[in-house]
Nucleic acid binder design. Structure first.
Ligand SMILES: Nc1nc2c(ncn2[C@H]2C[C@H](O)[C@@H](COP(=O)(O)OP(=O)(O)OP(=O)(O)O)O2)c(=O)[nH]1
Ligand SMILES: [Mg+2]
Ligand SMILES: [Mg+2]
Ligand SMILES: [Zn+2]
Length: 587
DNA sequence: GCCGTTTTCGGCCCGACTGTTTTCAGTCG
């Protein structure tokens, strides 16, 4: 784990433990915010900590937190964290993770019943002594039982690529309900996070009850977790995937405000609401309102909102530039002077530079592949089958590759309206050397170099390995740089700042592999790459026709990292792209 | 613990649903 991740975890845990000790909730929040701030840094916190002012200039990090960070960098410990660990039983944090159990209840169980772990919780459930606690009745006990049983089964976040199609089906379903006006998915899904915790769906309707009934009665609903006039939650089974879905129902006039609220992130919302307060207004999911007297919230006082119909109006009324959903992560976008970047879009992409054919592990011929790419309006498709050491994937030895190159040239002559490039996805060996010699690589129009094996290397080794590939004069693109598989394999954890700097120096593009299992580079690494001035490649790693549709996941990832079309080689026109490729061929 | 379009002290986002309560605390979004 990186120092950043370690420190973020420490502050996160400190927040939880302070909460269990009954500490002031604003102090608790401050620790949680510090954790987020550290987590969001693109640079190494240990390096930043060398500069006295640099740490405290980060929003959410003050003098006290900075001191703790420096203590950790110097000694490997945060003594206040150690002190908390001595006070709060480790197992209690797991009890806090049980849905429905919050800090107040868990603290009560701990103090009154000596609960220090999930096992202890089960004990007081079984012997009935849990009922002796205040505000604890039969229903609550039953809910805790069910939460425990369900949490044991699964609590993993769902991959974006698995969640988005399910959400789209839900949206289509709800759009058909009578009285429903507009439907949109929101939450982390709309922000394009690589994994999502639940499906958040917003509906505007003349008849809210109909929307609610349709939602809770939908096919696949296993359990209705809550259902009121304005929001409902269910647990859904969709194929093998079990996921929570939240529905929010609002008046159509408040759709923009509600979409803004429900898209989040939570931290972005809080920053916006604080900004509204400073400007003498109130922001909630019903709109941006002028300051009002009275106890009741403005929407219940019949106060006319300053803005509520669209997100654009609300950002404008807050004196801000519009923030694309992917950037609503409280990473500085709510500050004065922030400007909307022109982020890359799916329709900008006009070339695929990473695709396999039946020569290795693809299912299409060269011509079929080219026709698919052409149908998508691409001007260029690169055929990049696997290299010889990728045995399971049917990698090509030198002789087969030479023949394959000839076949690509021949197909390129035959298929009009698209350029078919001869390439390879050449394996990067554990030591950073490539799977073909330079003479052969020089014959290829495009070389994507990717790691496939030895993905558990230490950071130092992994960095050295990838740096060697990036600096190779014949390599155009570093493919799926870490080799991670979301929720399954961590992959390499190289020093991304070093890789990005080298990529910029050598004019090598870093791939965002769009496959939803990979999304590699990930969002944060895209940002690091751009900060160093590197180019990015949005590649679908096509094996079959439907893989072209993975593009949107990569685009979302790129957008989260701030990717603009200029920095993404797949958006360039044919001439510019081909010229760039030839620069590494002495042209 | 952090921070400043009115503040270097005194605020800190705001609302829906549930279960247990007899008026609202707790949890979650
Ligand atoms: N203002 C405000 N909005 C919140 C709060 N919690 C959640 N929201 C909003 C923003 C979230 O993006 C949105 C959906 O909540 P979720 O818990 O589903 O979070 P989100 O989808 O961002 O992440 P997830 O992947 O589901 O864990 O609701 C909160 O405490 N305050
Ligand atoms: Mg969500
Ligand atoms: Mg949710
Ligand atoms: Zn590939």
């Amino acid at each position: 784990m990186s120092t950043n991740a370690e420190l973020a975890t420490i502050f996160e845990r400190m927040a939880a433990m302070l909460e269990l000790l009954g500490e002031d909730r604003f102090r608790v929040n401050a620790h949680a915010r510090a954790a987020r701030a550290i987590e969001g840094l693109s640079g190494d916190v240990a390096e930043i900590a060398e500069n006295e002012k640099a740490l405290t200039s980060i929003d959410g990090i003050g003098a006290k937190t900075a001191k703790k960070i420096r203590e950790y960098v110097e000694t490997g410990r945060v003594h206040e964290h150690d002190e908390l660990l001595a006070k709060v039983p480790a197992g209690l944090l797991e009890v806090l993770d049980v849905p429905g159990l919050g800090p107040k209840t868990v603290r009560m169980m701990w103090m009154e019943k000596g609960v220090e772990s999930i096992a202890d919780l089960k004990r007081i459930l079984d012997d009935g002594s849990i009922l002796e606690l205040p505000r604890m009745g039969e229903k609550t006990v039953q809910n805790i039982r069910e939460s425990l049983a369900f949490a044991a089964k699964s609590s993993e976040r769902i991959r974006l690529g698995d969640a988005l199609p399910i959400a789209e089906r839900l949206v289509a379903r709800l759009e058909k309900v009578k009285g429903v006006q507009r439907v949109a998915y929101a939450g982390s899904l709309r922000r394009g996070r690589e994994t999502i915790g639940d499906l958040d769906i917003l509906v505007s309707a003349k008849d809210g009850a109909a929307a609610r009934e349709a939602f809770t009665g939908m096919e696949g609903v296993e359990k209705v977790l809550a259902s009121g006039e304005k929001k409902s939650s269910v647990r859904l089974q969709a194929g093998k995937i079990s996921v929570q879905a939240d529905l929010r129902v609002v008046d159509d006039a408040a759709f923009g405000a509600a979409l803004m609220y429900f898209t989040g992130s939570k931290e972005h919302n809080v920053r916006l609401r604080e900004r509204a307060i400073r400007m003498g207004m109130t922001l909630n999911e019903y709109g941006l309102f002028p300051e009002t007297e009275g106890e009741k919230p403005p929407q219940e006082q019949g106060v006319k909102p300053v803005a509520s119909r669209t997100e654009e109006e609300i950002y404008e009324a807050l004196g801000m530039a519009f923030v694309p959903a992917e950037l609503r992560e409280d990473q500085g976008e709510v500050s004065d002077g922030w400007e909307t970047p022109e982020l890359v879009e799916v329709s900008d992409v006009r070339a695929e530079l990473h695709a396999h054919t039946t020569a290795s592990d693809g299912v299409m011929s060269i011509v079929e592949l080219a026709q698919c790419a052409k149908a998508r309006g691409f001007h260029t498709i690169a055929v990049t089958d696997h290299s010889k050491s990728s045995v399971i994937a049917g990698g090509l030895d030198e002789a087969r590759l030479r023949k394959h190159i000839e076949q690509v040239r021949e197909a390129n002559g035959r298929v009009k309206g698209i350029t078919i490039l001869a390439g390879s996805e050449v394996d990067i060996h554990a030591d950073g050397s490539l799977d073909y010699d330079d003479e052969l690589l020089a014959e290829l129009d495009v070389v994507v170099a990717s790691p496939h094996a030895a993905l558990r290397q230490e950071t130092k080794e992994a960095t050295k390995r990838l740096l060697r590939a990036v600096a190779h004069p014949l390599v155009h693109v570093l493919g799926h740089p870490t080799g991670r598989i979301i929720n399954r394999r961590e992959g390499l954890q190289p020093d991304m700042n070093a890789i990005a700097a080298a990529a910029a120096e050598h004019g090598t593009a870093l791939e965002i592999n769009c496959n939803h299992l990979r999304l590699d580079l990930r969002d944060r690494d895209v940002r690091i790459a751009l900060e160093h001035g590197a180019l990015l490649a949005l590649n679908c790693d096509v094996h079959a026709e439907e893989d072209f549709d993975e593009l949107r996941y990569g685009v979302l990832t790129g957008r989260r990292g701030g990717l603009t079309p200029e920095r993404c080689i797949n958006t360039w026109g044919a001439k510019k792209l081909h010229g760039w490729l030839k620069k590494k061929r002495g042209g």
